[in-house]
Amino acid sequence: MPSLKDYRNRIVSVKSTRKITSAMKMVAASKLKRSQERAEAAQPYATAMAGMMERVAGNVVITNASPKLLAGTGKDDVHVIVVITSDRGLAGGFNGNLVRTARHEIRTLTAAGKTVKLVTVGRKARDLLKRDHADKIIKSFTNLGGGKFLSFSDVDEVTQYVLSLFEEGAFDVAHIIYNKFVSVLTQKPTMQQIIPFKIEKSAAPLKNEKTQELTSPYTFEPEEEKILSLLLPKNLGVQMFRAMLDSAAGEHAARMTAMDNATRNAGDMIKQLSIKYNRARQAYITKELIEIISGAEAV
């Protein structure tokens, strides 16, 4: 049976753990707010880019001569998956869930006879996938943004790497797997194809003002095909950037939730330990009293 001192020590240690987790929760909450602001600030560019893509692509017929980033290489043999996680842990199931999805996709693709190559972003992706897919990892990016907030140029490093791989003909299809920020409580591991690019028909109808503009004929300089081949790599960058901003916001949200739970659990634990401690103390006092009384009776 643990002694009174053991209980006291445990209560002290759980209390200090609670202090840490509650501090981490606060930090995550403020970082979450800033990440969300950044994700919002990135919206106008993405929207404008999507609008341009749509307008240009509407004027171009996709043929085999189209840019490969759009038309594909005509094959479907080698897949690259960019797995985006965080650098740090203690974020609940944030990284675990994502890596599980990635593993599942790797298995599916391998079973279909495809070659899979992995590009990992974030230390957790590298560490968790190294165990059983070390041979597939071709490049790992860690500590993007140097522990501060991601800038576009940090993400561009990854984009440029993927693009140059594609130019070398190292793969046919590329996907990204990242945690989509649904809400503070939910981050959904999502797989998205980035090469060849699938032009989404705009989900939200363009503004009235814009549709009117659309009716006036656009001039392209240089011609549509050329612009398209310039737009596509930039668009890839935007997709990547958005995914990573989502992932960053999700990481802080997940950590905040996880730390909130941990703080609450620590509180419960302290309560239970205090009860046990009091019982043990009472038992000890009773035992001493009995000893004294029975000693006095014996005299």
């Binding site: 503009e213 001039t219 392209f220 300089e221 240089p222 612009i227 310039l230």
Partner: peptide, 11 residues
């Protein structure tokens, strides 16, 4: 570019 420019998309 000035106001009233024709619709143009350029690299």
């Amino acid at each position: 570019v000035r106001a009233g420019h024709m619709s143009l998309m350029a690299a």
